[in-house]
């Protein structure tokens, strides 16, 4: 031990950490602070040419945001996506993990690769395919439903169905990722717990309820946290599938931020939107961690 301590000096600490911490400092921490200040200015397309045009405006951007119905719509849509899509995708991941992990399963690694395929593929390409699956006239989904005598639905064009359609596509694309983490969690549950439960006559549902779920709790907390953080940043799906329409029904916070900041160059206003998102994610994380602490007591 002492050999390592005595020969490590600040020179090598700087050598090894310098590039990474420098990059993270310049391109992450400083911009976070800069964005915070920017959200209190009217930085816009004129300031882009000359920063001197930006003026301090106090809380005006945040006030404008609170009075803006489009922002509330985007907020509502984002929560819809997080609160419906998040739990749905976690449930699907858990079911798929349990199916794959079952001792009955043959060809396990083949199924695992197939289930994981949507995760690694490019979202824009997936969107091209799904736009066609959802096509009101020629799409595979309406074709399949026609056998059940269900009349065609304009999935992406109907204000009611647009968000559920994006959620289903997102679940299809993402469930494989959390499935892998759940499999790791399932494999850590000691087998003899199930054996003794079976000796006492517990049925599969009871085994799931009283062994699998409690033993998986730490994994589930981690997955829920990461999924919620990720789902709040909902952007590419509505950008390529619906451009936020119809009637702003799929406009998300990040899409709204992108449009205001990089399409209309209202960068001060856009920074305020980004900070509201940050605060929401921060609160959601704090609540999660709090629940986890209380759960473990």
């Amino acid at each position: 031990m002492s050999a390592i301590r005595s020969s490590t000096h600040w020179g090598s600490v700087f050598l090894f950490l310098g590039p990474a911490l420098g990059a993270i400092g310049v391109f992450f921490f400083i911009p976070v602070i800069a964005a915070f200040f920017m959200s209190f200015t009217d930085f816009d397309i004129y300031s882009l040419g000359n920063w001197d045009f930006a003026r301090f405006v106090g809380f005006a951007n945040y006030q404008k945001l609170m009075e803006n119905p489009v922002f509330w719509q985007a907020l509502k849509n984002t929560f819809y996506f997080v609160l419906v899509g998040g739990p749905l995708s976690i449930a699907v991941s858990l079911m798929a993990a349990m199916m794959l992990n079952s001792p009955l399963t043959k060809l396990r690694s083949m199924f695992r690769v197939v289930y994981f395929l949507p995760v690694v593929t490019t979202l824009v390409a997936v969107a091209v395919i799904w736009r066609y699956i959802y096509h009101p006239k020629f799409g595979l989904l309406n074709y399949g439903l026609s056998f059940l005598d269900i009349s065609p639905v304009d999935w992406l064009g109907d204000p009611f169905w647009a968000m559920p359609s994006l959620i289903i596509m997102a679940v299809w694309k993402n469930f494989g990722y959390n499935m892998i983490i759940f499999i790791a969690g399932l494999q850590n549950i000691p087998k003899d717990l199930y054996e003794s439960a079976m000796l006492e006559g517990a049925n599969p549902w009871q085994q799931f309820r009283y062994i699998t779920l409690p033993m998986l709790a730490p994994t589930t907390v981690f997955i829920t946290l990461m999924t919620i953080i990720g789902y709040f940043q909902f952007f590419a799906e509505p950008y390529v599938m619906t451009q936020g329409g119809p009637l702003n029904e799929t406009l998300s916070i990040v899409l709204y931020m992108y449009q205001e900041g990089f399409r209309w160059w209202n960068m001060g206003f856009s920074a305020a939107i980004a900070f509201v998102l940050f605060i929401i994610i921060f609160i959601a994380t704090a609540i999660q961690l709090r629940l986890q602490k209380e759960g473990s007591h």
């Binding site: 992450f28 911009p31 953080i229 900041g261 960068m267 980004a274 940050f278 994610i281």
Partner: peptide
Amino acid sequence: GLFKVLMAALVIPGQVTMLPVFLM
């Protein structure tokens, strides 16, 4: 401490940094 700060920073969504990084 440094490592903890980095881990805590994971909750900051990347979108927050995009406007200033673009300007830089």
